[in-house]
Amino acid sequence: MSNEDVLNPKRMPHEPEKATLEGKNKFLGFWFFLGGETVLFASLFGTYLALNDSTAGGPSADELFGLELVFIMTMLLLTSSLTSVYAIYHMKNNDLGKMLVWLGVTVALGFAFLGCEIYEFYHYIHGEHFTFRSSAFGSAFYTLVGFHGGHVLFGLLWILSLIIRNAKRGINLYNAPKFYVASLYWHFIDVVWVFIFTVVYLMGKVG
């Protein structure tokens, strides 16, 4: 396949993200990467579960967490995962405009989530004097949730740069795999959050 065919395909295949060998490689390689990320977060969850009672006299999970804000954050992130599905649906229909709109909605929801998280951390640090250094529980909490937050930020910057780069040209066989794996990454972040919501917040309140 010539470079011209990749950038300006005459006919868009049904799955443009897997139409080239490079696309197939990227698709499979990214799934493997997410496998590694799973082990990374599993290690962080394991560390958190080992240390979540080690408050060293500071505030405990039950005293700190309020489920209202976390519920809103969960809804924001779950919805953003749904909107990224819409975006990829429109990518497969070769509809750049609608894809960009839905990606924009995804990014907006992601930033709203991140804003809530920053507010939450600010509240813990200044309101409750619960910091990264106050106890092993504090270190484990901010590391696990912070790693997730860092992933959210990275994902937002990534999707934004894809939107800006490709806003003026159509979907092609070169950028379709990029959009596709970015959406995979976004789903993965969402799945990790579901576990954080359960293990950190729900189990912290009732466990």
């Binding site: 560390t47 080992a50 240390l51 009672d53 080690s54 408050t55 060293a56 990264f132 250094r133 106050s134 106890s135 092993a136 529980f137 504090g138 270190s139 484990a140 590391t143």
Partner: peptide, 18 residues
């Protein structure tokens, strides 16, 4: 790295670490 460079307490038994 966090323990040595940023003052966290994962391995600091005094602060509940393990």
């Amino acid at each position: 790295m966090f323990d040595r460079m940023f003052g966290s307490a994962f391995f600091d038994v005094n602060a509940g670490g393990n």
